[in-house]
Design a binder for these strands. Structure first.
Lengths: 203, 203
DNA sequence: GTCTATACCAAGATAGAC
DNA sequence: GTCTATCTTGGTATAGAC
């Protein structure tokens, strides 16, 4: 009785790779490095588990690829927001760009996951390089002062935390959280309410 | 040829419990929830793996106990820093209290780990409650305005990240990092240089 | 380029002795 | 209160077919 499509639609490697990386980002973000299985990633991407391993070598290398992609996506988003009036306005644009990336499921969280793995002998150094790279971009390319860079970064880390915590779920029901959103984000709730992940979203 | 001490020194349950929780904090902090094994915790605490499970039920319950302890320790440290002149001075004292807790190995990181698990059906709600509890303490008990609370929290999240990333290792060799430390911490590097974890610290 | 089958190991949890 | 031994599951990675 032939249940259709055994070997999924064939696809050029590069394209499939990008597809898997996107899905892996969301899975790593939600489950952490240790909590993620290559099978979970495979399921999310609609391919077999051995294929994921085959394509990236090991789970660790897959994570590094995810991290690399995430930091490049972030850097691009920031760079795209730089042109135009500088100072407060530029910071505002960059903040909006950052919040806009919430739509890229798991991007902020996977970066945090990597940062938290600073003690790992192989992921740690990569994570530090990534963090420093963004720091330099913000300070040198966007021209923020050190104090401005610090505040910008700190705000970013807070946003990451709020997103990862799924605090958005409580928005509108919990006044505590409403006020937090009011101060934490560089724009009104409407802008990002439909991109925030929900508490019961699998990833 | 009797290699000594088979059943380790007996100890009242409450005391052993606290001891295990401390060590588990460091292990969870360094390896994440998924990356932590009950055996790793057992080794760190110098007891057998089944005993850890026996005492806490499951790995998940152990993590919840660690989270609960961490948030209580943090709340106490903040409360102890409230009495005295308010405004900037109080914020400064609270910031110092926060940095001082770096000596409690893994405390900040384990909180972050919990926050990143916001999507988890059982850990998520606990993590949100913990975050909100501290938010309320900072705003209501310490009397910070919403904007001040937000900045205080944001700075805290940045400190967590820097600590977890083991950026301290590069201090003194990398000028980028020196300037970051200069702006991110509420005190000079000397105050915390010997409590910051190193990149190769197992946990 | 993608799958199925499987070897192998690691980790959580239980049983039960001391 | 604490251990040793062990059962069981599930996850990484390999082999090899299509």
């Amino acid at each position: 009785m032939e249940i259709d499509e055994a070997p999924r639609t064939r696809m050029p490697a590069a394209e499939r790779r990008e597809l898997i990386l996107r899905d892996a980002t969301a899975v790593f973000a939600a489950n952490g490095y240790g909590g993620t299985t290559t099978d979970l990633v495979a399921k999310a991407a609609g391919v077999s588990q051995p294929y994921v391993v085959r394509m990236f070598g090991t789970k660790e290398k897959l994570f590094l690829a995810v991290l690399d992609r995430a930091s490049r996506v972030l850097a691009e988003a920031f760079r795209a927001a730089i042109p135009g009036p500088d100072g407060d306005e530029r910071r505002e644009r960059m903040g909006m760009a950052y919040v806009g990336l919430i739509a890229e499921r798991g991007l902020h969280q996977v970066l945090m996951q990597a940062f938290l793995l600073g003690g790992d002998p192989v992921i740690g150094p990569e994570a530090r390089a990534c963090f420093l790279g963004i720091w330099q971009l913000v300070r040198d390319e966007a021209g923020m002062s050190e104090q401005e860079s610090r505040d910008f970064f700190a705000g970013g880390m807070l946003i990451n935390t709020i997103v990862a915590l799924r605090l958005g779920d409580s928005h509108g029901v919990d006044p505590e959280i409403d006020t937090m959103f009011g101060v934490a984000f560089p724009c009104s709730f409407d802008v990002y309410k439909d991109v925030l992940p929900t508490a019961d979203e699998p990833y």
